[in-house]
Design a protein around this nucleic acid. Sequence first.
DNA 1: ATGCAAATGCAAATCGTTTGCAACTGATGA
DNA 2: TCATCAGTTGCAAACGATTTGCATTTGCAT
Lengths: 141, 141
Amino acid sequence: MIMSSQARPPDYESLLREAGVRITRPRKIILKILAERDDHPDAMAIFRRAVRLDDSISLSTVYRTMKLLEDRGAIQRHAFQGGPSRFEPADSEHHDHLIDLDTGDVIEFHSEKIEQLQDEIAKSLGYEIVHHRLELYGRKK
Amino acid sequence: MIMSSQARPPDYESLLREAGVRITRPRKIILKILAERDDHPDAMAIFRRAVRLDDSISLSTVYRTMKLLEDRGAIQRHAFQGGPSRFEPADSEHHDHLIDLDTGDVIEFHSEKIEQLQDEIAKSLGYEIVHHRLELYGRKK
DNA sequence: ATGCAAATGCAAATCGTTTGCAACTGATGA
DNA sequence: TCATCAGTTGCAAACGATTTGCATTTGCAT
């Protein structure tokens, strides 16, 4: 079991430009926020950070940009229990999440053993896993 | 890894009555639907089934009853990817879910090994698991 | 620089779910 | 059995997260 390292995301700006996506002022700002975040912010949190850099940005644009980035595979959306979707760059290696029920903090982890067991189970049921969701909800001891 | 058996739920009607909850006509109907279901219906599906038995039932009552039953520990709520919450009686032993991406079908499974690994991971991070969510999303091979 | 499709901000719409409120109805005790 | 009255209902309106229509603005290829 390893903790995910904080690999720096690739240059999404040029990546998107190549994909025929315009690099606008709001998008620049949102990408910057994503690059600098070290947590798992939701759309509203991203919006609040964005407004500090440019108060003309709208929440819709944040949502639209998140969708855009998600579709391009640049970020991952996590719909944790109850709350709004939270996002993180998709560049790091796959990992699951432990959510601190008291603080909302998210701790990343990965277990190759669990992944293998999941594959076995799916296989034995005649299925192929497209993706999965493993979330532990707990309290600090 | 075992498939969960279809244990029949206890007599919720008397259970609830003892807890000081009134057994009303709508609640009787909803309990009946839950006892007879063999899938994982959402509130709207339960509502549609209920209306067939009594067309005066309201969707709010379905939601209120699901909340009531959830709080009493009688049913479990599952918020699968994207869609609305889906419910199932909570009497069967713990299990996780494999969701068929094409049909929405839900297959139950359980892996003691995975559970153990989860506990180990949480422990090594200094956490105690309150509950978890393991969902495999896949396609039939 | 110019033109035009793409992207924006805003407000209104959407979806699943919850809630306020006045009307109704189970369960208890006379 | 029946009156009582808090618990429960149906309805409509409110809700939070997210999406969408539309008129206006803006990248960026020419």
